[in-house]
Design a protein around this nucleic acid. Structure first.
Lengths: 226, 226
DNA sequence: CTTGACACAGAACAAGCGTTCGGTTATCAT
DNA sequence: ATGATAACCGAACGCTTGTTCTGTGTCAAG
């Protein structure tokens, strides 16, 4: 006689996990959910009703959501969900001292590369798709706590409110830099993120060229350093 | 007589864009692609054949991929694709000087929160799901170029290779810190990421408690700073 | 004025697919 | 034993959905 998978409703069974894993991997590969029959084939379940049976259980346990009556109408919930909203932010070039910063309109070429950021990591209003990214080259931003190789995500802007971190072109110093912006009575104060560094004071008559607001800094540490 | 949308094959039309946008928003909402008829309804196209007609064009222009014969078998390609592979990394707690670092096995509770990272941002081998994240509290990591509030993504580890950034518990100093790890002849050298700081030398007999390797640092700058 | 492409509509067809129902086997408490 | 329940199978039903075919009005080139 055939052996049944004995589980008797004590939590998640092997079959449940296998189905969950398959949905995740299928979704990763095809970018859309599998059909009931496809799940059945892969998990060696010969009847669609059994797959449906398991899917219902997974839904009851809150691991899956189903849109009844519509084909492939399912999605994984919680940590197992491999797909999520993301923004593809184009990396327009590099930012370094001594060279003007690129802004989207100035970029002559299509972005060579881009970085993907989960929308859940973005604050509500930065989710517009005008964001762009730059890779920091050199150690000139260490006072802004930004390392060589870091990726900064920027939102185009020509002005800023107090406390916002901006990318500015300092004409008299001939350099691009990242600083917290503060408007003061006699001009502007550009405060480094690192409290060990002193602020830069810019007088009202001097030109202050804000290029964008920094919304995120990302550092991949998988590379080695000397 | 009825006015036709005249486009005559010169690039992308208004209709094409509307369809693209609808697929993206539908996918964002339902986590699976729409059906041809759903596209038609929303874009005011009364015939499924016309939707199919447009979908074919979008595919030819490389903006869409289609899995023929299967329901809702389509996906956006390139920058318009709102969905992508991501890892949900649990934020297990905070890391701060003076307190031991949490490692996954020590965490007694389910993660309160988590951060979503695109797998494309991860180097190949860190994609296992044993990663965890900690939020930095305080300014004690500024020599590691890590700011108050930053989120560090860690991979559990008890040992490290030269050049890797590790989270260590320094017993004699009674603090947690992030440093680049180097094994030397008489012990270990812990190098701050910021070149302005001096390395910490640890002798062989002293205890060096590596808790994990840092694979990424993320800083959300949308919050304001004093 | 014709011709042909383009942009549609509508209907019909055939798969794809979720759902349901009757039936079977195994395990377990009573 | 026996009934209840969980874990299945297989088949049928019918809606969903992609596909295809015929036809129509528009517009620009010849």
């Amino acid at each position: 006689m055939m052996m049944m998978m004995v589980r008797k409703s004590k939590g998640l069974g092997e079959r449940h996990q296998k189905i969950l894993d398959f949905i995740a991997s299928y979704q990763r590969e095809h970018k859309h959910p599998p059909s009931i029959r496809e799940i059945g084939e892969h998990c060696k379940i010969s009847s669609t009703s059994v797959v449906n049976y398991y899917l219902d259980q997974l839904e009851k346990e809150g691991l899956l959501e189903r849109d009844r009556k519509i084909s492939r109408g399912m999605r994984l919930v919680g940590n197992s969900n491999p797909l999520g909203d993301m923004l593809r932010v184009p990396v327009l070039g590099v930012i370094q001292a001594g060279e003007p910063i690129l802004v989207p309109s100035e970029s002559p070429f299509t972005p060579e590369d881009s970085v993907e950021i989960a929308t859940s990591m973005m604050s509500s209003k930065e989710k517009g798709k005008d964001l762009f990214a730059l890779q920091v080259q050199g150690d000139s931003m260490i006072d802004a706590m930004v390392n060589d190789g870091d990726i900064v995500i920027l939102k185009p802007a020509q002005e800023a409110r107090n406390g916002e971190m901006v990318a500015v072109w300092l004409n008299d110093r001939n350099e691009t830099t990242l600083k917290y912006f503060y408007k003061e009575k006699d001009g502007y104060r550009l405060q480094p993120a690192n409290p060990a560094f002193k602020p830069i004071m810019v007088k009202k008559n001097e030109s202050l060229d804000i290029k964008g607001k920094v919304v995120m800094v990302i550092r991949k540490v998988d590379r080695l350093v000397a």
